[in-house]
């Protein structure tokens, strides 16, 4: 086993070096920024004061204090986590059958089916959201059809546009491939002999799924959930466009700090908290996944 270790470490060198330069270094710049004052006209104030040739540090904890001053930021975080959990679950429910179907179809069609999952995403994000806005529009065909049906059964008409439903639909839509792709990569390599054997032993369809396919696919689900959960947590464009008057998430407030109130230090504080939350959730998730897998 000794001989394996060195080349594994060697493997990790290039990505590690790259991420240290282009991710860790800038992140430390921003972490440092959380202790600095905001510049009067935006950006950051200098972190030192020059008095009679003497340099003194001009740093502060007030940005962190503001975070805990009131409960609005906590409530925002909880709300965002709620959306992220809901989106992840829906993506899982929708993505699983799709990934399974692709993994079980003939080799010839697999590439094409996989490509079809991702194709819509080469059109522009905004164009896709606008397409959904056309669908949700009160004068749009879908809404009218739906309300026609509701009218038939005597229910009150609904507004889809600018509702949490619309937001959730788009969140799921935008992140679905990030669930399907890793899930497929996992399901694809499952050994069908196992399933055949189980069938020979008389296990039913569902039993085979729960006892074999599902546990084997847990690493794929974990990877997919991470890829969906985290970006949703920091999302701001969809709440901006479709959220109506209440659809605000933590991402929007972070964006406000950088783009509207010119408060980079506080924006950095919120971002750091978000990043740490997300990484914690992910590490926890993958540890759970690993434990179950190693059962």
């Amino acid at each position: 086993m000794q001989r394996k270790a060195w080349y594994k470490y060697l493997l990790s060198l290039p990505p590690m070096a790259y991420l240290l330069i282009f991710f860790a270094a800038p992140t430390f710049l921003m972490l440092f920024a959380t202790f600095r004052y905001a510049g009067e006209y935006g950006g950051l104030a200098p972190w030192y004061l020059q008095e009679g040739g003497r340099l003194t540090m001009d740093l502060t904890l007030e940005n962190w204090q503001r975070l805990v001053e009131s409960d609005i930021y906590l409530r925002l975080f909880l709300k965002s986590i709620g959306y992220a959990v809901a989106t992840t679950l829906i993506c899982m429910i929708m993505g699983y059958p799709l990934a399974l179907m692709i993994a079980r179809s003939g080799r010839k069609h697999r590439d094409l089916l996989l490509l079809l999952v991702i194709l819509p995403f080469w059109s522009n994000f905004l164009v896709r959201i606008y397409a959904w806005m056309i669908i949700f529009s009160p004068v749009g065909a879908l809404t009218r059809m739906l309300n026609g049906l509701l009218d038939l059964i005597g229910a009150a008409p609904v507004t889809l546009m600018y509702s949490p439903t619309a937001m959730l639909v788009c969140l799921v839509y935008v992140h679905l491939p990030f669930m399907v792709l890793p899930l497929y990569a996992n399901l694809e390599k499952h050994d069908f002999d196992l399933l055949d054997a189980a069938q020979d032993l008389g296990a039913g369809k569902w039993r085979r799924f729960w006892l074999i396919t599902w546990p084997l696919s847990l690493p794929g689900i974990t990877a997919g959930s991470i890829l969906v959960f985290i970006p949703v947590l920091g999302m701001f464009a969809i709440p901006d466009l479709l959220g109506g008057t209440n659809g605000i998430m933590i991402g929007n407030v972070i964006k406000q700090q950088f783009m509207e109130s010119r408060d980079w230090p506080f924006g950095s504080v919120l971002s750091m908290v978000l990043t740490v939350t997300a990484v914690a959730v992910v590490l926890l998730g993958s540890r759970l996944g690993a434990r179950r897998e190693g059962r």
Partner: peptide, 21 residues
Amino acid sequence: EATSAKIRRLKNKLWTEIKLK
């Protein structure tokens, strides 16, 4: 007019409260 950092912060907090409510 260009506003001071203090006012910008206050406005932003009030604005966040409005949106969260």
